[in-house]
Amino acid sequence: MTLQITETAPPRTEKKSRRKAGKTPLREQLIGWLFIGPFGLVFLAFLVAPLVYALYLSLFRKAMIGGTSFVLLENYTKAFTDPSFLDGAWFVIRFSLVLIPVQMLISLAMALILDIVTSRFARFSRLMIFLPYAIPAVIGALMWGFLYSKNFGPLGDVFGLFGATAPDFLSRDLIFYGLLNIVTWQWAGYYMIILYAALQGIDPTLYEAARIDGAGNWQITLRIKIPLITPALLLILVFALIGTLQFFNEPKILRDLAAGAIGPDFTPNMYAYQQAFGLANFNYGSAISFALGAVVFVCVYIFLFATRKRGSFLS
């Protein structure tokens, strides 16, 4: 993955990696396969098979009148001209482009603060900020849905203090930010903990050395801390990408409160669900699922291939 940034990697402990697999004794090969076998089966059964099956299903179309017919790639040509699918995909892309930097910045800032401040209060805060990670997305969305309610939640009171009208985060205009807030709230603490652990792993002598050289706090942060935790930043980038690609739970729950702002085609996942379970259109739903899965698979692979360094990621 992206995590193979290996400039500072310690010498590999595996010694005979240069040995060609073909020359490995059959027995060792067999044992290797035995170890990955159970996972391999699950992988084939619940990832490869569904994708292949989705591909197969996506070649057909079932209409209310006329029944099922073989249409080859028509579902895909439809998907890539279907405003519902494209708008949903575009929403997810826009959302990721804002969400991921925001999340990373907030969690980085919090981690840096907690790395400096070592009071009891800071330790307590660290734990509390992490807590939302333990909340299922469904429950998180539900809680924030209540909080967003203008005359039911506290926003009205808070804004009322300043004589202003509370913004309606469940309206069409602001739902983007409403969701942004929920997802950030849920995940920032977890990312913060990852970054914090990485910061704690940095050898403090580096800071002393830098101080002797006349570096201030800001310079230490920018020149030492952040560069040294780049791998952790990449890790949370991966987590955040996985999260946004799966985007379903929060909008699905908020839809009960904001049907006008969140359509059934809000994200590609929701659209696939709606096609399959709302409209009995499993073939088209499968096409969307497959398109999503396959596109991600290929993109990741291209990305890995393009960014591989010293061919190390396949080690």
């Binding site: 309610s149 203008k150 005359n151 039911f152 469940l170 009960d256 409160l257 049907a259 006008g260």
Partner: peptide, 18 residues
């Protein structure tokens, strides 16, 4: 109003005479 009906927001609005 433009509120979705049946939501808690709407119900509290109905109760409060909105």
């Amino acid at each position: 109003g433009t509120q979705d009906q049946f939501t808690p927001e709407y119900i509290s609005g109905v109760i409060n005479g909105d």
